[in-house]
């Protein structure tokens, strides 16, 4: 190993680490606000990447049908709720948002010449299809059991993960896809050659992290989420509906997932079940941050990325083992240094 190889490996590790960082942030966010350990986070990566690949190949993405199905389910739940509460005048709005929107997206996908659109428009379309699945998923799966224990929520997460992987196989088939890179440029810095895609990944991650920080620090919705994360009951007493906080969180998580998918799919082939492992590495990073600290989680993600790329050089057969073993010393260290606080019910 010489200096040049170390540089290349470092670059590789930071690129992957940036994506793990995004996922780790989403996991920390979802856990802080809703106490859900969001295992299907990785599926949003795969759904985003593969929906984009479908659009790029001029195929109607089947995820749009899932959007419609989920929308109808949400409309039924919310509509029944409104009727029971005697608020029939809410019905048109519920229908427009949950059924009208998916129908509009489907119409858009059917009418536009998908393959001829620019990559930016294709990415936008993929986001329009996949991102709303996040809040819809919260409404259907998690909202009815929002007060359940962390363990129940975790088991429901496992179930949703398995269901989404199965649907992914149905939608996209067993084979993987790659999407075109966001930039073909290459920059030579001395002996190191950096691809435009790497810069995109790192820059997009930093921009997103800064945007999230601003969102939480400066906007009323961000502050509402922070308040819910700190004290759920207190936030409710201050007039922040937990359902809104949950939906907003899942919207952000889905958005981050889809963006990660768009960023990673030009670097590697994405399969219907690729999301799980990528999400799991984000989870290791989130654990390093104790599922609470955003900066520590981001740091952990870069650590995971670097560890992964250097161990693939020295001991490729044990790469995954090394990455996931990292979690043990971290847990030991965390349990020794932090004081255990009983969860308030």
């Amino acid at each position: 190993m010489d200096f040049q190889i170390a540089l290349i490996l470092g670059q590789d590790g930071i690129t992957n680490g940036a994506i793990y960082a995004l996922l780790a942030l989403a996991l920390v966010l979802v856990f802080a606000v809703t106490r859900v350990i969001f295992i299907p986070q990785g599926e949003f990566v795969a759904y985003g990447a593969l929906t984009l690949a479908m659009i790029g190949n001029n195929v109607f993405p089947a995820t749009a049908w899932l959007l419609l199905g989920a929308g109808v389910a949400v409309a039924a739940l919310d509509g029944l709720g409104a009727l029971r509460a005697g608020q029939a005048r809410k019905l048109p709005r519920v229908l427009a948002v949950n059924v009208g929107y998916p129908l509009a997206v489907i119409a858009l996908l059917r009418l536009l010449p998908l393959a001829e659109l620019g990559l930016a428009v294709q990415i936008l379309l993929a986001m329009l299809v996949v991102v709303p699945l996040g809040p819809m998923m919260y409404r259907i799966v998690y909202q009815p059991i929002a007060e359940a224990t962390v363990l129940v929520l975790l088991i429901v997460s496992v179930a949703s993960h398995v269901a989404m992987v199965g649907l992914g196989l149905l939608f996209f088939g067993a084979e993987g896809y790659r999407t075109p890179p966001l930039s073909d440029a290459r920059f030579d810095l001395g002996s190191l050659s950096i691809s435009g895609q790497t810069i995109w990944v790192v820059a997009a991650s930093i921009v997103l992290i800064v945007a999230l920080a601003l969102f939480f620090g400066r906007t009323i919705y961000g502050k509402a989420l922070r308040a819910t994360a700190i004290n759920r009951n207190g936030a409710r007493l201050m007039g922040i509906p937990p359902a809104l906080a949950g939906k907003l969180t899942f919207l952000l998580a889905a958005l981050i997932g889809v963006l990660s998918g768009v960023l990673i799919s030009p670097i590697t082939t994405i399969y219907y079940d690729s999301g799980f492992l990528i999400g799991l590495k984000g989870f290791v990073a989130a654990i390093i941050g104790g599922l609470a600290s955003y900066p520590l989680a981001a740091f952990g993600a870069v650590l995971v990325g670097l560890l992964e790329s250097f161990s693939s050089f020295w001991a490729s057969a044990y790469k995954e083992v090394l990455v996931f073993t990292l979690i043990i010393p971290v847990l030991v260290w965390r349990s020794l240094t932090s004081h255990h606080v009983e969860e308030e019910e």
Partner: peptide, 11 residues
Amino acid sequence: TDTSVTGQVLK
């Protein structure tokens, strides 16, 4: 499921 094999390839 690897997202990168740069290390192995360099070696």
